[in-house]
Structures are given as structure tokens and as C-alpha cells.
Design a protein around this nucleic acid. Sequence first.
DNA 1: ATTTATACTGTACATATGTTCAATAAAATT
DNA 2: AATTTTATTGAACATATGTACAGTATAAAT
Lengths: 185, 185
Amino acid sequence: MNKNDLRVIKTKQGIHQALLKLLKNKPLTHIKVTELCKEAKINRGTFYFHYEEVGDVFKQFFEEIMLDLKDSYNEPYRHHNTIDIHTLDPKTVRIFHHIKKYEDFYKIVLSQDVSTQYYYMLFDEIRSNFMTDKNTSSLGDITPYFFSYTANAIIGLIIEWYRHDFRESVDDMNELFVGIMKMKM
Amino acid sequence: MNKNDLRVIKTKQGIHQALLKLLKNKPLTHIKVTELCKEAKINRGTFYFHYEEVGDVFKQFFEEIMLDLKDSYNEPYRHHNTIDIHTLDPKTVRIFHHIKKYEDFYKIVLSQDVSTQYYYMLFDEIRSNFMTDKNTSSLGDITPYFFSYTANAIIGLIIEWYRHDFRESVDDMNELFVGIMKMKM
DNA sequence: ATTTATACTGTACATATGTTCAATAAAATT
DNA sequence: AATTTTATTGAACATATGTACAGTATAAAT
């Protein structure tokens, strides 16, 4: 399978477009392979030549979204060994802007009955963004746990935001995040 | 459908046992309704009389586990004194003992390709346990976000523990958690 | 013990999955 | 332009899903 073959490109584009169209009317988990192929006007065997299930197509969408997240990740952690709440500027928090940008996709990723694979893609991306150019050699065995703790805490905020149907503005979320970082338990 | 009917009780018990047996050999997502019914020696129509999919049976297991998690928060604390009680609410760290107790189930819940519904069951349970602990009337709009932040942060540690194949002891996890709390706050 | 209620079975049917393969069409290569 | 390569098609097949319903078995109720 040559991904540069024009036939492959056309077929995949058709499948992508078809999925986006069907997602406007029904949840991801209700979309059948047969239905998707009919919409894309391709043979069902062709689908199975490229994918295993409908979710794999959505995964390709989300992989591109994860690339965008990598570019726009949370700035406050970038230049500090540990979180310093005094240098946290709400305007530099980029993740909530990113989430809002792809709100429609995150509504799917964070829904109740979808595969956990997308959640872990998000988790790993946020986590690795925290890890890059951060010197944590002094922390020892606790380091991987610290990253997972912090990354998933952020997703906790995103889940809550999602459950509020993303009503709060991006700026509200930035302020809210800084507020929680400053809190004492 | 009367859940006290002996026929219902027997059928459900059979399905439960069958699922536990099949789970020893293959992941939850690979277990078919047909297969489960054959193992339980019941008609496939009977399954659909009680459930919609195989995951619903696993959900019943996990509902009971969530009850145990709730109970573990209500029991009086009698644990090793490896934790400085004055720096941390000891109720919080009882969770790792619970996770270890049901390790086999959490390996399914936290796996890559399972429904997010179990994750959210865990999230909501941990979150509500936090809520009953805390007096947060003074926090205002930030409160629901604070709970989601903290609850999911804990799950972040559990995810990392899961990815380490639960090699660290429960006591290690308790100390590790305290360590992270101290470095953040 | 008899009647009543209903969970369960067996069957059937329409639809969907997942795979295979020869034929075809469309691209890349020469 | 001719040839080679291979993505795509269409068809077939075994298996699984989801639903429906009449008949049966088993429990509860009288």
C-alpha cells in the first residue's frame, strides 16, 4: 500500500469526508463500516484494505489534532524545572485555546462510550509536552508519576469543562487553572 | 423483569461466571455475545433480555467495585504509619490499597481499547469521595473544577502505576503520592 | 395442587462484520 | 505509448448482531 498513490489519496479523502458528514448526525460508535462506505461511495473491501474499524479513521483526525497540540502546548511549564505559580501567566496557557479550537472533536473523545485510545493519545501528548526540555534528574523515581499526575490533572479540568458544555470562555479557564494552582489543599 | 426471580438470578450468575472465565483467556473487547452465551449455556435471546452488550456485564462487576471504593472511604483508617497524617488526609491514600485489591479489573478498565464508561465511573466515584470530605463553600465557581482536577490527578498516578504493571507496593504509592503533594503545594 | 405469570428457548430474518479472491480499472513506470 | 504494478471492485462465504415471536419450562401466587 503506497500512501502516495493517487487512488489511495482519493479513497482516504473520501472516507474522511464521509465520516465528518456522518458525525454531524450520529455519534461515532453508531457509525457502521457499511454506512461509511456507502456515504464515501467506495467498496467495503477497500475500507478494510486501509482500516480495521471506523474508529481508525477518527484516530487519524485526532493524530493531526495532537500535532497541533504539540505546537501550542502549555507554556508555563516550559522553562521551569518545577511549577512556579509566581511566574504563571494566564495568557500563556495555550491548552484551553487548543481544546476550544477542536471542541467538536473533543466532545467525541471525552464522551461516555468511546474507546479509551483517544484519551490516552491526549494524555500522552500532554504528558510528553510537560517532559520536554524540563530537567527533572533530581526528582528520582517519582518523576514519571509527577508527569502523569500533572498531565491528568489538566485533563480533569478539561473533563469538567466538557461537562459544562464548554460554556466558560478560554480566558475563564486560564484564570481558573491559575487559581487552582495557587490553592492550598 | 423481576431481579428476585430465581431464574433471573441463576441466569445472571451463569453469565457472570462465564465472563470471568473468558476474561482469563482474552481481552474484554474480543469477547462476543455468542461466545459468552455458549460458555454460560444460555440462549442468546436470554442475554439480550438482560443486557445490550458484553460490556454491560463487566459494568455490573465494576459497579460493585465502585461500591467497595465508596466503603473504603467510610471505614475507619487502620493502615501502616508510613504516612505523616498531619500533612495529608489519610482517607485519600486508601485508594491505592483498593486498586491493588482489584488489580485484575483495573487492568481492563485502564487498557487502551476499552469503553471510556468505566473510566468515568472511577472518576465520578473518586470525585464524589473528595466532595464529601471537603468543606468548600467558600471556593465559589472554582469548586467543581478543583474536584475534577484533584480526582483526575489521582487517576494519573493510577495510570502510571498500571503502566508499571503495578510493580510498586501500595506503601510505595502512598509515600509517592505524599511526595508529589509536598512538592506541589 | 392448581392457576397464573413470565423467564427462557428455539427459530427465523434482516443486517453487519471480517475475510478471500479473481477480475478490473487506474495509477506508476518504462 | 506500451507495459507493469497494484488499488479497487464485486461477489461469495462464514460468522456475529439485533430483533421478533410463538412455544415451553419454571418460578411465583392463589
